[in-house]
Design a protein around this nucleic acid. Structure first.
Lengths: 263, 263
DNA sequence: CCTGGTTTGTTTATGGCGTAAAGTGATCGC
DNA sequence: GCGATCACTTTACGCCATAAACAAACCAGG
């Protein structure tokens, strides 16, 4: 590898990320056709099943055919990542204040992560610097601007919100994956592991009294909750609760700044 | 795979996770020796370099030798994960209130993630159900119990705090990884990519005015900041700011519950 | 029309991976 | 002494990303 390889690759991948979307008319392949196939593989069979062969097969081509359009698998994943981000809504009504809009944004982002769980495995918050990643940030900032907070605090808020949603979605995605892999519902999965834990971890309740306490409590059912599986229902509730805490924290920051713009 | 494979594997891996730590006296291998070697590989060369062959080489054995002690690479990673979690401190003084203790806990956890960045790549928040994972939860709950919040809200708070710290650490870890892989300091790395972005993304400031605004602002230096690299310094500041917002949110929840225990 | 270069693929090959299966040599209970 | 068991190695299989060589279709200039 030459010393300037990073530099040269940066140019190449940036041009791919910011290419104008058109131009797949002919019978041959194209970057967008490849990305769609790769996204379909990842959505359907997970990130582990995403291989150059799998994508090539789906297109009726060899794995090597892809390398004409995409320099490597790592670049392919980056391009997939930025492309799916384009599915996110761009506009949120601000008539009811930033809090309502931010909650809607967070819930849409969570839904997006659950629709494309493989996105959560794209290296943690790596700055891919693609157009849709910036569009997502721009949308979030259009909402957060209403708080009147300065850029310094806002940077922290952006990080906190994004990381929270990503993490919470990851918990749900993992519950689903575990359920699918074992062929059980997650309720069955949990109740099959729980006795093993008690058998093997002797004196659990004494060693971890608080963990037992917080885990044991069965929260009351919530309207509309019935169809959601067991572990996932908990995770959804924790998401709602945690998001409220976060929103309260932002409100406190606004109050402390003493310069809230919204009514 | 038999129908009950998941069940059987659960027993096997649980017994490994909860085994008592001793017993590596002889000249032969042992689970703990293997885990130490594997952790050393992951700490030194990253998760991508962690292979059964690499761990075996480090111990002067073949890759297959490990399979006498560890059923698969996936189990190995789970065991590594729970083992390093044991490095986390277990006690935090509560004399100055939960807020001080929680901040210390979060900063220790962030430091832990940065010392073992590969932990961030262990599948998102998957419940490994090992002893040290529960110990970590127990430690956090000993702090959060002081808020007097009920288990329902507390579950949300636990998720929010853990996910925030994990995500924020991931950003820093990625900045470091990018810097190391390209052989540049992250300052050089950013200033080599930044002009490429401007060249390729025409009209950036018009398309993403808020993103430009929040990215352009250069925050004032902070005492003790001088030795921290560029991108990482930003990430650390965002961590502190975001954590404050989160703590404010918890305080708001406490105030709303009207049952704060702390003075 | 021919012709040579470029574009778009394929095939083949290399070195790495996790791990199943079989082999090897030592050790231990009888 | 001797089979069983243990700890470990060797070999092998089918994956993976991708470098390199090759082939066929297109297009430009004569």
């Amino acid at each position: 590898m030459a010393v300037f390889a990073g530099q040269g690759d940066a140019h190449r991948s940036m041009r791919l990320l910011w290419r104008e979307p058109g131009g797949s008319a002919g019978p041959g392949l194209s970057v967008d056709v490849i990305l769609d196939a790769a996204i379909a593989v990842a959505d359907g069979d997970g990130m582990a099943a995403l291989s150059m062969r799998a994508v090539g097969d789906r297109l009726g081509r060899s794995a090597m055919a892809l390398y004409t359009y995409v320099p490597s698998k790592a670049e392919l994943v980056d391009l997939m990542y930025d492309k799916v981000l384009g599915e996110l809504p761009a506009e949120y009504p601000l008539g009811d204040g930033w809090r309502v809009a931010l909650r809607a944004w967070a819930e849409d982002l969570r839904g997006f992560f659950l629709a494309h769980p493989w996105v959560l495995q794209v290296s943690q918050a790596r700055p891919v610097l693609g157009p849709n990643e910036f569009a997502m940030l721009e949308t979030l900032l259009r909402i957060l601007r209403e708080t009147g907070l300065g850029p310094s605090v806002l940077r922290g808020v952006v990080g906190a919100v994004v990381q929270f949603v990503r993490g919470a979605a990851g918990v749900i995605a993992d519950a689903r994956r575990a359920a699918r892999e074992t062929g059980m519902t997650d309720e069955e999965w949990w109740f099959s592991r729980s006795p093993v834990l008690e058998e093997v971890a002797t004196g659990f309740a004494e060693r971890f009294p608080l963990a037992s306490w917080i885990g044991a409590e069965e929260p009351p059912p919530v309207v509309g909750d019935e169809c959601v599986p067991y572990l996932e229902r908990d995770a959804v509730r924790n998401f709602v609760t945690g998001l409220d805490v976060l929103l309260d924290g932002i409100e406190a920051a606004v109050a402390r700044a003493g310069a809230g713009v919204e009514g």
